[in-house]
Structure formats: C-alpha cells, structure tokens
Design a protein around this nucleic acid. Structure first.
Lengths: 246, 246
DNA sequence: GTAAATTTGTTCGTATGTATG
DNA sequence: GCATACATACGAACAAATTTA
C-alpha cells in the first residue's frame, strides 16, 4: 500500500511535512479506520528512515489539524475520518464554471478592496495598481457547500457591487444594478490542488482532499474583461462537464 | 492566480518554493506571455518581501525546469510556459503538445481484453458483454510524464490497435490503420481525486497529490461512440483550458 | 562612443530553522 | 535538553553583461 516515495531533502519542503502529507493521504484513502491506532512513532520513524523527532513533528501538525489525537502512554489515534458527502450521482454544474449561475444561491462570506497585481491587471486589462473589489462567495446546492469562489471587479465599474450581491445573492443581478446587462465567458482554466485550510472549513472538507480550481474571465458585451474568478470546487461532490458540441 | 500575498513561514515549505509556485501559476495563467521579460529580481524581492537571494533560488528552480531563462544584463524571460490542455471537439494530445513546440510521445504500458460492463456498454453504445480492448497509456511531454489514460475500444472495430499504438505512439495514427480517418469528442467530464498508488508511480507523483480525472467519449464521423477514455492528469503540470467560443 | 544606470551573477558573512543522535 | 550538521534566509558588497542616455 505504501510506496516509499523517497523523501526529498532539498526540495524546499521540510521532511516532517512530506511525512505529514503521506500519512494524511493514507488516512484519507482509508488505510487507517477512524479511531484506529497509528503505528508507534518509533516504527514510523524507521519506516520513513528518519529520526523520531521528525515523525513527532508530523504527528503534531496532524493533531493540530484535528486529524490525529495522541494519548500519552496509549498511542496515537485517528480522530476524524475523512468527510464524505455522497450526494448521489455527481451534480453537473457546467454553468457554474463560468460563474454564470443565475439562481440566487450564493452567499457573501467576505469582501475587500485591493489593488491589482501583475496577474489581475493582465487578466482584467487594467493598469497595475487599479482599485479592485474582491468578493468571496460560497455556493451551496441542496444545503451542501459546493464552491468557494473569489471574484475581482474593477471598483469604478461596479461601485456598489458588494451590497447588491449581498442583497440578491446573484452576480448577474448585482451586475445588472450596475448597468451591465449581459456578459460572456472568455475562457476557463481548470486545474486541481489540495484544499487550503480556510476553504476546507467553508466546504466542510477534510484537509488533504482535492479541489478543482476553476479560473475564468468574463467579458462584457464590448469584449472588455469585467470579472475574474477563481473558484474552488469540492471534487467529490461535483463534476465539470464540457460539451463537445458546436 | 494565487492571491497568496502572504508567504507562510511556518508551513514546512521553503519560502523560495512558495515563490516558485506563485510565479509558475502566474505564468500558466498568462500574466506573462511567452518570451516576455519577468520583473527584475530586485522588484520581485520587494514584492514578496524577501531577500533577492530567495527570489533567485525560485528563479533558478524554474530555470532548471525550462520555464524561465536568465540573461545576464538583460533580464529573465519566459522560455516555455507550462502546458495547457485545450479541451474541445477536436482534442488530441499530440496536436496540443506539438502546437506548443513540445515533443509528444505516447507509451503503451498495458492492455487487456475484457467484456463491457453496464457503464462501458452504455457509453460505447454496444450490448452488455461485448468484447473490448482496454489500453493503458502514458503520455509524456519533454520527458515529463503528464497523463495516464485508460481507453476502451470495441475490439471488432480495431482488432490490431494494441500493436499499432505501440508502434506509432499515437491514437490517431493507430485508428487510421484500422480505417478510421477521423473522430471527434462528444463530451468531457472533469473531476479531481487523490492520485492512486499505481498512477503515482507512473506519473512520478507523491502520494496524496491531486490528479484531474478527465472522462471522455469520442465519436466516429457517423456519430457512433468509438472510444471511451478515463485520463488521470498530473494537476501540477497541466491546466485544462475551455475556450469561451464553444 | 562613452558614461551611467540596470540587471543578472557571485562571494563573503551571519542568523535562524530543520534534522539527527 | 543539548550538541552537531545541514538547509534556509538575509545583508552587503562587487563583478559582468546589457541597455539607455
């Protein structure tokens, strides 16, 4: 079960973290049941070919994440098994990919004003340092959190966006109040990462679970970039569908 | 589009590596065109709030990956952006990589004869129990493994597929030898999972890393299902791109 | 064409973090 | 807890190549 992926000592990733990731992956994949005892530290140390201190640090990190719990004298136990929300056949949410969800099921979980860095400036076609609105939203289907998304808009184009979105729960509706009647998606880029701590909390995912990262740019009808979105999608609950037609 | 403006100094990941990942993500997302010059090291250092040495190490790592190239006195330039994988009706791995000036290569890593189960029978439009060829392939670009794919074909339509693919390294070429001159993609479904042990070995990924799972069905020009594929894509090496034209 | 400014490349030293025994 | 070795990060300087004025 365990392929000894050789520890890399100069990859810029601390050995304790590499061990932590490996153990987490094994727990997630079900190698250890919930409540079961982990092998003793000495055994793990010899298995990974490291000092016991190093294993202890990996275990400490997993403990502070709530994944393990160590009882002095008894051993280390799996505290929380990986969550899973089997909501039947995977929901198909291709329309969400472009951030064009029309139904008001979005919840505002945060917003901020910030200046465009090189990447955002390029994607939105604005000068570096342009004032942007950043909006964090959570999208839920059937009571299950599905997507955490971060969107950026040029503030001068949608000055009252945050209040409008909070009220309507819909990006389309909020944009309409700013006089933008329609928009279209330019392109969508998809990759996958391990979920970040904050997103894991929002999505109710265990750490170490994968999320799809969907980056998209929407254009107004004049072809000017309007909105830039980075959505993190719970991979076990949702499937992106790309039609081959047209 | 990493908005990770704050570097995490106690995550067990070296700062230079965090910067490397950020820059790589920005290059992939198109903030810097191929051939364009990166901001000077001093500027990047102040942007990330680190010493110039630290930026230099991140740049050195990207240089040894072939992504950047540094000329003394001139600057640092984007040599070759990491691959992106455009998904559309005519997706073909070899065209994609050759379009981006990379050397494509498909390697046969296994094959088997099996009977269609309910799912495969439905997707290929054949009766339950129809004899299929299952082919496992590894696709590599510039010596870096990118994709492990499992494909199913109706054996009677491509009786000699395995030998033809092993010889040509190309699905398109092997199908042509079976008299199938062209095909198109019906639909593509994307999700993400943690990499499986066997795939991790093939792709050279550590356990616990995410892969994108791309399931697709190709149709022949008469619209009949021809090929059904489940590809596992190394998420840190490739980005799927859906253009907005479709 | 020369000088100044920019930008990458290199070499010291020092402090801190990581991993071992 | 302590001593040791190595990797990481910072700071200051200087050298080499290129661009700009």
């Amino acid at each position: 079960m365990t392929t000894n992926s050789t520890l890399d000592r100069s990859a810029g990733i601390a050995v304790w973290r590499q061990i932590m990731e490996t153990l987490k992956a094994e727990i997630v994949s079900g190698a250890f049941e919930k409540g079961s005892r982990l092998p003793p530290e000495s055994e793990l140390a010899s298995r990974f070919g490291v000092n016991r201190h190093t294993v202890r640090r990996a275990i400490a990190a997993l403990t502070s994440d709530g994944i393990l719990r160590a009882d002095q004298g008894r051993g280390t136990f799996v505290a929380s098994a990986p969550l899973s929300y089997p909501i039947g056949p995977r929901t198909r949410f291709s329309e969400i990919v472009s951030g064009q969800l029309r139904a008001p099921s979005g919840r505002l979980i945060g917003s901020a004003i910030e200046e465009a860095d090189a990447l955002l400036a390029h994607q939105l076609g604005v000068p570096l340092g342009t004032v942007l609105i950043r909006v964090e939203t959570l999208r839920v289907a059937d009571g299950v959190p599905m997507i955490v998304a971060t969107s950026w808009f040029e503030q001068s184009r949608v000055p009252n966006f945050v209040a409008d979105y909070a009220e309507t729960g819909s990006i389309t509706a909020a944009l309409q109040r700013a006089g933008i009647s329609d928009y279209r998606r330019k392109e969508t880029r998809i990759t996958a990462e391990l979920v970040e701590t904050r997103d894991a909390q929002q999505l109710g995912l265990a750490l170490g679970q994968p999320v799809m990262v969907v980056e998209s740019v929407n254009l107004d009808m004049a072809g000017k970039p309007l909105q830039c979105t980075r959505a993190r999608v719970a991979a076990d609950r949702m499937q992106l569908v790309v039609s081959g037609d047209t």
